[in-house]
Simulated assay, not measured.
Amino acid sequence: MTEAVRGVPQGPPRSGRLTHIKVGSAPDSWGVWFPQDPVQVPWRRFLDEVAGSGYEWIELGPYGYLPSDPALLGRELAARGLRVSAGTVFTALHHGGASAWERTWAHVSQVATHAQAVGAGHLVMIPAFWRDDRTGEPLEGATLTAGQWRTLAAQTERLSRQVHEEFGLRVVVHPHADTHIDTEENVVRLLHATDPDLVHLCLDTGHYAYCGGDSVKLIERYGERIGYLHLKQVDPALLARVRERDLPFGPAVGLGVMCEPPAGEPAWEPVLEAAQALGRRRGVELFAIVEQDMYPCPPEKPLPIARRTRSFLRSCGA
Rank of each mutant, 00 (worst) to 15 (best):
S215P: 13
I226N: 03
Y210Q: 01
Q233Y: 05
Q36F: 10
F167M: 09
V32T: 04
H174N: 08
G254W: 09
V216I: 09
L201M: 06
R245T: 09
G81N: 07
A274V: 04
W30C: 14
G16I: 07
E166A: 14
W33G: 12
A98W: 13
R14V: 13
V188L: 12
R245Q: 15
L47C: 11
L313Q: 10
Q292E: 07
A288F: 03
V111P: 12
A26W: 03
H20C: 07
L286A: 06
Q10T: 15
A92E: 15
L198A: 13
Q110E: 15
M1Y: 11
V118G: 05
M1I: 08
P42V: 03
I126M: 10
M125D: 09
A240G: 15
P127M: 00
R80V: 00
D293E: 11
G223K: 00
E291C: 06
A193W: 01
A306F: 01
G279R: 11
P35I: 07
W130V: 06
W105V: 05
L169R: 04
P270L: 03
A120Q: 11
V32H: 06
T309H: 12
G74K: 00
L191K: 04
Q148A: 11
V216H: 10
R45W: 12
S99V: 13
T88S: 14
P138W: 08
G96S: 15
F167R: 07
T19H: 03
